[in-house]
Write a protein that binds this DNA or RNA. Structure first.
Length: 440
DNA sequence: GATGGCCTAATTAGGACTTCCGGTGT
DNA sequence: CACACCGGAAGTCCTAATTAGGCCAT
């Protein structure tokens, strides 16, 4: 049983290999993937910024960090959140990814205060020293790709479902991949303040134990994601039970709706009960979320949104890896045909990785302009909002670089060719800024 | 014309569920 | 009685690997 002090929930930026960069962006500064998002509608993918008006508000007050404490507002927020979540169509998980982006760069005042990053140092499980964004920009040799075409080779086994301690290996085929495994989905929900802890919550984050507070709602969300309107907890539960065999999940004995991840990524975002959304721990699924998450709105996904999501899919040509923390032994263990230790090198596409490259902050030019111009942002005090301040500083500098006409092409990526509509600038090394309550 | 490389579409294998079911426990 | 939970069995869906065939250059 791992003790809390033995766990390390680390963040990708902490282990970025700075080799070869040598620029002003030292480890104190985040690297940001800057994308010129063609349309502001991308922000609307997230339930957090579900309305254009909200986006406009963001432009006006991008860094509100005051917590939302009003109960009424909380209720409204939850209503909106549930509604937007149930309206989320994330064939490529963009919704959640966008949410991630906004978590890193708080466009919503609620988020910036809600997310608590649990960082516990001590014994490391899973090789923390390894860069988490392993070979993010490495390319598979072309010859290697071509050689696979010809010559008879025994059929490769398809990569199995990755576990949190995976190494992601992106290949060229999964450009539009929308695979988000159930366990990933649950982890995403657990990092989503809109549903955590309202629908799903950690009961022991360090141990990876979580509870489906509203199993029906979670099942509906899953069904929504999988385009299975008939999804229910019974069906989802069957999928969860298959995870027992595969060593991904364990059931916590004696506690209904309580499961345990056998391993966790280091850079999980842990939303605690006190982080904002009032917990409604109705074990009997009796909360009013049923009304909120009524299916009546579920089918209102606009086709334009879907096409937009396709347009916004980020070319996944990178390989990502991140380490994980092995959760302590479950309270109930089952023999796993595939031991986790044997799965450490399971490959999966970046589109299915829990922390995806797309999760990196996506900063539109508009955001940069906002950041650059707003005195409020520039007046942020490093002591008070260290990460925010750093982010603002960096984004400001990035914007200046862009504005000055970055003709060197140093920030261009090959992705630009295939996605001419997206002005993508990658600043290396990749580092993330996460706004945490501890920064304040 | 023969050979080989490249490209693309079709086929295939297999993973990840999904659905259904009967049963047990709380 | 409702619900959670279990696991077997069969099915679907999706994706990646493989294969076949056409085109082109040498």
């Amino acid at each position: 049983m791992l003790q809390q002090s033995e766990l390390v929930f680390d963040f990708a930026s902490d282990h970025i290999n700075l080799t070869g960069f040598g620029g002003p962006l030292d480890s104190d500064y985040p690297a940001v993937i800057v994308e010129q998002i063609p349309h502001a509608h991308l922000l609307s993918y997230s339930g957090l910024a579900c309305e254009q008006s909200h986006i406009e508000d963001v432009h006006q007050q991008p860094f509100k960090v005051e917590p939302c404490e009003s109960g009424d507002e909380e209720t409204m927020e939850t209503l909106v959140a549930a509604d937007s979540l149930l309206n989320m169509d994330c064939p490529d998980t963009l919704s959640l990814e966008q949410h991630y982006s906004e978590t890193f760069l708080p466009l919503d005042d609620g988020i910036s205060t809600a997310v608590t990053q649990v960082t516990v140092s001590g014994g490391i499980v899973g090789g923390v020293d390894q860069p988490q964004w392993h070979s993010l920009h490495t390319k598979r040799p072309a010859a290697q790709l071509q050689s696979k075409k010809r010559g008879k080779k025994s059929r490769h086994r398809r990569a199995e479902s990755p576990t949190p301690d995976i190494i992601v290996k992106k290949d060229k085929y999964n450009k539009g991949g929308n695979t988000l495994y159930l366990w990933q989905f649950l982890m995403e929900l657990l990092q989503d303040r809109q549903v955590c802890p309202r629908y799903i919550k950690w009961t022991n984050a360090q141990a990876g134990i979580f509870k489906l507070v509203n199993s029906k709602a979670v099942a509906r969300l899953w069904g929504k994601h999988k385009n299975k309107p008939d999804m229910n907890y019974e069906t989802m539960g069957r999928a969860l039970r298959y995870y027992y065999q595969r060593g991904i999940l364990n059931k916590v004995e004696g506690q209904r709706l309580v499961y345990q991840f056998t391993s966790l990524p280091k850079d999980m975002i842990y939303i605690t009960d006190g982080d904002g959304a009032k917990e409604e721990d109705h074990d009997n699924n009796s909360c009013n979320d049923e009304d909120v998450s009524d299916d009546s709105d579920d089918s209102t996904i606009s086709s334009s949104d879907q096409s937009e999501e396709e347009e916004q899919s980020i070319p996944p040509e990178k390989k990502i890896s991140f380490n994980s923390v092995r959760a302590p032994a479950p309270q109930r263990t089952r023999p796993a045909p595939k031991l986790l230790g044997q799965r450490d090198t399971v490959l999966r596409s970046s589109s299915t990785s829990l922390i995806q490259e797309q999760h990196l902050p996506i900063v539109s030019g508009e955001m940069l302009r906002t950041l650059h111009n707003l005195p409020k942002v520039q007046s942020l005090k490093p002591a008070g909002h260290a990460s925010v301040f750093k982010t603002a500083q960096l984004l400001g500098s990035l914007w200046e670089q862009q504005a000055s006409g970055d003709s060197k092409g140093a920030m261009e990526t090959p992705d630009e060719k295939s996605h001419p509509g997206q002005k993508i600038s990658h600043v290396e090394p990749l580092q993330l800024v996460r706004l945490t309550s501890s920064d304040q």
